[in-house]
Write a protein that binds this DNA or RNA. Structure first.
Lengths: 223, 223
DNA sequence: GAAATAATAGGAGATATCTCACATTTTGAG
DNA sequence: CTCAAAATGTGAGATATCTCCTATTATTTC
């Protein structure tokens, strides 16, 4: 992890306007952190000292269950918060946050800014919108995972993550994300190939029948 | 649905202080609604005209999937909001909200109060806490449903909902809530009886071995 | 109070998904 | 470059969960 200082910090402050986030000046004690891919931004079960706001990159929220299973709860993208739960609640089981690409965040020391943040309508309004989306997303994932088999959820995931018709996510990550075993994921991918929806070459899968995948995916969404 | 007027309205306004919720007066246009058990407070896919705050009773959030399956997303209890998603977002797939007991809510006309609410730090701070808990709860339910079989989740649910050692929730509701088929729920309940954890009499189940149920339930929680 | 509707109950077979075991390939650290 | 760790791949059998079907009770409704 690196902390940007001096000119580099200035550059990021100027490039990424934060005027819409806070109604009081935060530059003085705000830091800018850079995390490498796979770095832990927050360790599971360890309270963070900062409230983060992602300006570049992508991270993953993980929780480890008592039976050893690991769930990838969700991804965090640019313009999203990290550590907001701990800002709001004194008691909270902290989830692990891991950078999945190089990630750059604004980092506001909680001990210093907490009080003012919780009185700042502008900040709270942004955070409220973010949290409401988070709640909605989780509710959707929850109900979808119960109402539909992997087939449908995977089709949706492939359409969302494939780039120029190529799907090449890591199986390991995907099973944590979709909450199924490695074995089963492979099984369903193989089926997709057999049915001609995908074509496998090495470690990449090429989308051959968008239509079929769309059919499978569309039942997920009412919205 | 009834709307309280005059003295009855006054009574509720006096009994339930709302000073901690808003920093401006809302009494003038705020209504007080009473819903019977099974009334729909909000219809699925129909934007509500009010932001509600539950002061008495309990309600259920439902979504209907394209394949006809119904998910009971969660319960809403006293001191929780209803319709906050629509207040925050212009585009939103509205879930259905059904009273599961007689439910009394404050009802604030959105068209009238929206602007001021979104500028009120006190209101936003409360809402932020509520939404963060909602997001956390949904995330927990999501990952638990993927990491553990019904056995564990049902044990937890029985411990949470049984009263004086008696469990008597409606199976129909429970399967929507835990996201399993009616058939399977019965099957696991029967197992619990066979193992002596529960004893069935008529439509009630008596908890016989708290310890065993606790064992099953405790793996769900790290927190 | 009879008829319609919702809830409970359980059998039987299908299928979605998991666990475990093991082999191969790729990646990363030194 | 080399070795260990991570990721991929596959078989076989177990289990969790679903679907469909059919009865039997409660609960509503007219």
């Amino acid at each position: 992890m690196k902390i940007y200082k001096g000119a580099k910090k200035q550059l990021y402050l100027e490039t990424n306007s934060i005027g819409h986030l806070f109604s009081f000046p935060v530059e003085e004690f705000m830091e800018i952190h850079e995390y490498e891919r796979d770095d832990w931004i927050i360790q599971e079960d360890t309270r963070p000292d900062y409230l983060f706001y992602v300006i570049e990159g992508k991270a993953k929220i993980y929780i480890t269950h008592q039976n050893g299973k690991v769930s990838l709860i969700n991804f965090i993208n640019e313009n999203e918060y990290i550590g907001e739960m701990e800002l709001l609640h004194d008691v909270y089981y902290t989830k692990g946050i891991q950078a999945s690409t190089k990630t750059i965040c604004f980092a506001l020391p909680i001990y210093y800014y907490r009080k003012r943040l919780l009185e700042d309508a502008k900040f709270l309004r942004e955070l409220t919108k973010f949290l409401s989306l988070k709640a909605t997303t989780m509710a959707a994932k929850y109900t979808q995972s119960q109402a539909f088999p992997l087939e449908n959820r995977l089709a949706d995931f492939i359409l969302q993550t494939s780039d120029e018709g190529v799907y090449k996510e890591k199986h390991v990550t995907v099973c944590d994300y979709l909450g199924v075993s490695y074995r089963h994921l492979l099984h369903v991918l193989t089926q997709f190939c057999e049915r001609g929806y995908l074509h496998k070459e090495g470690r990449n899968y090429y989308v051959k029948q968008y239509q079929s995948l769309h059919e499978l995916a569309k039942v997920l969404r009412n919205e």
